[in-house]
Write a protein that binds this DNA or RNA. Structure first.
Lengths: 205, 205
DNA sequence: AGCTTTCGCTACGAGTCGTAGCGTAATGCC
DNA sequence: GGCATTACGCTACGACTCGTAGCGAAAGCT
């Protein structure tokens, strides 16, 4: 998770239970204090480990929060609901449910803000959070193409750009709705959003 | 800006030059240090004022950053380009240009993250930044309706929900593209985005 | 056994925070 | 001009967090 274990066959192994306790304590601290007022000393106390153990495993607060928040997105799935619209609505509702949790709100945006000045942190966010979400877009499009709801891809480069565009639109809309507008992305909103995404603003004859 | 001056006719007035210097110094510090490593003492030194002056005018770092970033969005305009698509592309490009600046990237997302646990801060962001952006959406829709590109509004409540939806989609997509995907929202991307927003994903005959 | 790595604990200097206190400067009112 | 009122610059302060160093003990492997 937080660091590779390439060649350390000997010696006392790192406690995996401590890892889970630390990440859970981090989420609890995010809920109670938020990301800015979260201190590593407090997390260590909550997790029942020494503060030095935290610094031995993570480079700093940002990396710790990324790993703690990333686990929230493990539950994201894309069940086949029979149509592109239903698939979109289903996965967007799941994404919204995760973002509605206070530890995700406070933690995720804070580390994204930090990542604008930290290339390594942005890469960590990308591999452990963003790419996992983007895979759902790829999967959903493949299903829609198999159903004939979307045309098959022609140019692979153009196809990749489209996937990136869709991903930014979907994830960005949900994030903006939840965090900036601070209103719930409930079923009614998701239905309206899906309709606009599939059919566009201008009504078709 | 940061506080009302309701009934203080007597006494030495607050220096408006200091206000401008402080906000400019805040933006400079955002560029060099980012929001998390920005300290009020450093801002005071850059602005040439005492640290206590900062604390007399702003409640804390978050409020100061909001005011400093809000000024960046003053230049947002909605020139009439003749069509809804052209209007959208124009304003989105402006919005993307502002978000591309490092002081906006680092500062805006950080205070949005903080606002998830601070209702007063969220209200401050809404009135000084978000509402000003949303007004452009209202104006653009009115023009499109006058041109006949969009149907006139029927239910005012439904109309308000649609405006909120469009705003979350547009602003969210640009923010996500710029900050999370960390790629430029250039003209090509904006054209593709506008096409999807107006026509939808599923191709129409 | 012996070796290696991790863990818990304590202590430390450095830095920031937000505030209090004081004397001075700049305005409005009489 | 004199007075009250408010803002300003400056200094100093306790409290807190940070990240690290050092040490002895614990837990694994061969």
């Amino acid at each position: 998770m937080q660091s590779r274990t390439p060649a350390s066959r000997t010696g006392r192994p790192r406690s995996v239970a401590a890892d889970a306790a630390i990440l859970a304590a981090t989420r609890a601290a995010l809920v109670e204090l938020g990301c800015s007022k979260l201190t590593l000393g407090d997390v260590a106390t909550r997790a029942g480990v020494a503060k030095t153990t935290l610094y031995r495993r993570w480079a700093g607060k940002n990396e710790l929060v990324v790993d703690a928040v990333a686990e929230l997105f493990d539950e994201l799935r894309l069940p086949d609901r029979g149509s592109l619209a239903a698939d979109i609505e289903g996965v967007v509702l799941q994404f919204a449910a995760i973002l509605a949790r206070p530890e995700a709100k406070s933690g995720l945006m804070a580390v994204v803000a930090e990542s604008t000045r930290d290339e390594a942190l942005r890469e960590r966010i990308r591999t452990s959070i963003v790419d996992r979400q983007k895979r759902l877009v790829l999967e959903g499009r493949a299903r829609a193409q198999a159903r004939g709801e979307l045309p098959p891809e022609t140019d692979p480069a153009e196809s990749a750009r489209t996937v990136d565009l869709i991903f930014d639109v979907v994830a960005g809309a949900v994030v903006h709705r939840t965090l900036v507008s601070a209103e719930p992305a409930d079923e009614e909103w998701v239905r309206s959003f899906t309709r606009v995404l599939l059919l566009g603003l201008t009504p078709q004859p």
